[in-house]
Amino acid sequence: MTWLFIIGVFAVAGAFYLYGRRKHRRESGLTNFQRHIDALSPERRRESFDRVRSQNRDDDQWGRR
């Protein structure tokens, strides 16, 4: 009887744990996707590109072909 009770408690705890992990994974999938899309936004990209554009204006050291 006691054994059955202990097993029951473990099973419920295990189920909660697994559920929580899945939820966490789903949420982190969401934040990762948002982070990914945000990193591709025009504002983020402008920061990288301005670096190259200003460099291009300053010097044309590597003549283009």
Partner: peptide
């Protein structure tokens, strides 16, 4: 590709 290296973890 340079932009990907600037935002390595996110991309």
């Amino acid at each position: 590709a340079g932009h990907c290296i600037e935002h390595y973890d996110a991309l």
